[in-house]
Lab assay of single mutants.
Amino acid sequence: MFKRLMMVALLVIAPLSAATAADQTNPYKLMDEAAQKTFDRLKNEQPQIRANPDYLRTIVDQELLPYVQVKYAGALVLGQYYKSATPAQREAYFAAFREYLKQAYGQALAMYHGQTYQIAPEQPLGDKTIVPIRVTIIDPNGRPPVRLDFQWRKNSQTGNWQAYDMIAEGVSMITTKQNEWGTLLRTKGIDGLTAQLKSISQQKITLEEKK
């Protein structure tokens, strides 16, 4: 169930391209415009997507990853294993993690069937560096609404905000991946996880038929 919630949630996290980005210092504006741009692209490019579902990787690479804190999220997933990894191991892992996100997020976007969304009203940021933004996803086919909290983090150097995690039903996506990959990290280390991520990233994206 959580895996499905995570995939549905990713439908609204794909941010804007650099040329049309919203105010990078306001995570609420980023979330709002990102959702609108993403849904528009999914709707307008269905012919290309249906002809070649792996085209979704391109959308992810162009529109999402430049505005997601990939390395920060990847380091959180590694936890204690990050500090013990060599620079070469980290570089290989982050490259594999990025390719994994292209496949995983692309597969999530393949679930698009006309969903709509509501974003919580903007709250004062103050001096906060981590801000959760509640998004409610509404399914046109009558499924119950899904309420999610996207975690946005302020870059201490640039002042810009980027998304790095999502919490559904009190469970963090980062925590879920830590639990899912924990045994592999304990037995085969970061190299074993890197190899698995490379394998997963090679899987073809498949479209979910409308139910």
Rank of each mutant, 00 (worst) to 15 (best):
G126C: 08
D127E: 06
Q203Y: 08
A92N: 08
V146H: 04
Y100D: 14
T116P: 15
R57Y: 15
T20A: 10
T176C: 08
Q103I: 14
A163F: 00
W152R: 02
V131F: 06
T86P: 08
N52H: 12
F94M: 12
E33N: 07
T187W: 08
K211G: 12
N160C: 08
Y164R: 00
R57W: 15
N155R: 01
T187S: 11
W161Y: 15
A21C: 04
K83E: 03
A104H: 00
R4C: 12
M31W: 06
Q178M: 00
S201L: 06
D149V: 04
A120E: 06
Q103K: 08
P47D: 05
M166W: 04
W161F: 08
T158L: 04
A21R: 09
A104Y: 04
Y67Q: 03
W152T: 06
I190T: 10
D40E: 11
L64E: 02
D54G: 08
Y55Q: 09
V12H: 05
A9V: 13
R50Y: 05
Q24K: 13
L185Y: 05
M1P: 00
P121N: 13
K188R: 10
L109H: 13
Q36I: 10
P132M: 14
V77P: 13
M166G: 06
S199P: 14
A9H: 01
K154W: 02
A51D: 14
T194R: 05
R50Q: 10
R41D: 02
Y72T: 00
A85I: 04
I138A: 12
F94T: 09
R134C: 07
A18C: 11
G106A: 13
I119K: 08
K177Q: 15
Y72A: 00
L185K: 15
Y72R: 00
L207G: 15
P47K: 06
L109Y: 05
Q203P: 08
A120K: 14
Q151R: 05
T136D: 04
P121M: 12
E180Y: 02
Q115Y: 02
Q107M: 13
A195H: 07
L76P: 01
F2Y: 06
A195W: 10
K43E: 07
G114D: 09
K211L: 08
L193C: 11
Q89W: 03
P47C: 06
P47N: 11
T116K: 15
R147N: 02
T194D: 08
Y100R: 01
F97G: 01
I138W: 11
A108Q: 05
I190P: 11
E91S: 10
A96V: 14
T136M: 10
M111S: 08
Q62P: 01
L64R: 00
G74R: 00
T187P: 02
E169H: 02
Q203E: 09
A75H: 00
A22H: 10
Q62H: 08
Q69G: 11
I167N: 06
T194Q: 15
A21H: 09
V146D: 02
D32C: 07
P132G: 07
D61G: 09
G170P: 00
Q69D: 01
R50V: 07
N52W: 02
N44Y: 12
R143V: 03
K37N: 12
N44R: 14
R134N: 02
I138Y: 11
Y117G: 04
L207H: 13
L125F: 15
E45N: 05
P66I: 03
N26L: 09
Q178T: 07
Q48E: 13
T183I: 07
A96M: 11
Y100I: 13
D165P: 00
D191I: 04
A96H: 08
V171Y: 03
L10N: 00
Q89I: 04
L78V: 05
P66T: 06
Q178R: 04
F39V: 01
I119S: 08
R186G: 01
A51T: 13
P132E: 03
R153F: 00
L78P: 01
G106S: 15
S199F: 05
K128A: 10
L65I: 06
P132W: 01
A168V: 10
P27K: 00
G142A: 10
I130N: 05
L10D: 00
G114F: 12
M7W: 08
W161S: 02
K204F: 15
Q202Y: 15
Y81C: 04
V171N: 01
Q115G: 08
R98V: 08
P124A: 12
K154Q: 14
Y100F: 14
I205Y: 15
S201N: 15
Q151F: 05
T129R: 08
L11S: 01
E45S: 14
V77E: 15
R143T: 03
S17K: 13
L148Q: 02
K154I: 15
V131T: 10
E209R: 07
K102E: 11
R186Y: 02
T129P: 10
P121W: 12
T183L: 06
Q103N: 15
A88D: 13
K71V: 02
I200G: 12
W152F: 05
I174Y: 06
A19T: 08
K128Y: 10
T175I: 15
L56Y: 10
L10I: 06
Y55E: 10
L11P: 02
M166D: 03
G159Q: 05
A195V: 14
E169G: 04
M111T: 10
I190C: 06
K29P: 12
K83G: 07
G126K: 12
I13Q: 03
L184F: 07
A92L: 13
M6E: 00
Q89G: 06
Y112E: 03
I205H: 05
K177A: 13
Q62V: 09
I49K: 03
L65S: 07
A95W: 07
Q80V: 11
V77F: 09
L76V: 11
L109G: 06
D54I: 10
G159V: 08
Y67N: 03
D32I: 07
A18N: 13
M111L: 12
Q36L: 10
G126Q: 04
D23V: 12
P66V: 04
E180P: 01
A14W: 13
A168G: 08
R57L: 15
T86A: 08
R57T: 12
Q89E: 09
Q151V: 04
T175H: 04
K204V: 08
L30Y: 12
D191W: 03
I130Q: 02
F150D: 01
M7Y: 10
K128I: 11
D23A: 12
Q103T: 14
V146P: 07
G159N: 14
L5I: 06
T20L: 10
N26Q: 08
M111V: 13
A51R: 12
I190N: 06
T176S: 06
Q196Y: 09
H113W: 15
A92S: 10
A73G: 15
T158H: 11
T58H: 08
Y93P: 00
P144N: 05
L11N: 00
K211F: 09
N155S: 03
Y105M: 02
V8D: 02
R4H: 09
L193W: 03
L76H: 01
Y67I: 07
Y28A: 08
P145L: 07
A110M: 13
D127R: 05
G74S: 06
K43W: 10
K128R: 14
P121Y: 15
I200H: 08
T25V: 08
N26R: 07
Y100A: 12
K204C: 11
A14H: 07
M173C: 01
V77L: 05
I130D: 00
F94D: 01
A73P: 06
A75F: 00
A75N: 00
Q151A: 08
L64D: 00
Q115L: 02
I59E: 03
Q103H: 10
P121G: 11
E33M: 06
I137T: 15
R57V: 15
T38C: 07
K154P: 06
